[in-house]
């Protein structure tokens, strides 16, 4: 199971379509970073709308990916965080760093455009 990464202009769109194991998340992180390098992308849009659990490990991978992308010159926008995920994220004590957040992919694309 791999995470599809679609190039759209200067941006990469990643739609997480299934619940991920820890290994899959780390693999997706590596793949995203290689694609940034290959495509010289300036923005990442990660759609998490079908994800219904973000635990401390997944939260860390997400933050790390955004930080690494930023080191490579790309901004990260996360779209579609579910209400329950937002609540548990806070209660777990996790923090979102280096990440823009939007409600859906459409808003994400607009935001990426305004960042260019």
């Amino acid at each position: 199971m791999t995470v599809p990464i679609i190039k759209l202009g200067d941006n990469l769109i990643i739609t997480i379509q299934t619940e991920m194991t820890d290994d899959m998340a780390v693999e997706a992180q590596n793949k995203i970073l290689s694609r940034i390098r290959e495509t010289e992308a300036r923005g990442l849009l990660i759609d998490l709308s079908v994800i219904d659990v973000i635990d401390s490990f997944m939260g860390r991978v997400l933050n790390d990916t955004a930080m690494m992308a930023r080191l490579m010159g790309a901004q990260t926008v996360v779209a579609g965080i579910q209400p329950g995920v937002a609540v548990t994220f806070m209660e777990l004590g996790l923090k979102m760093k280096n990440v823009y957040t939007v409600l859906d992919i459409e808003q994400g694309l607009e935001l990426l455009k305004s960042l260019e």
Binding site: D52, V53, I54, D55, Q82, P83, G84, V85, V87, T88, E91, L92
Partner: peptide
């Protein structure tokens, strides 16, 4: 939301 807390 509680389902999410429990699953997490």
């Amino acid at each position: 939301v509680d389902q999410c807390r429990i699953a997490t």
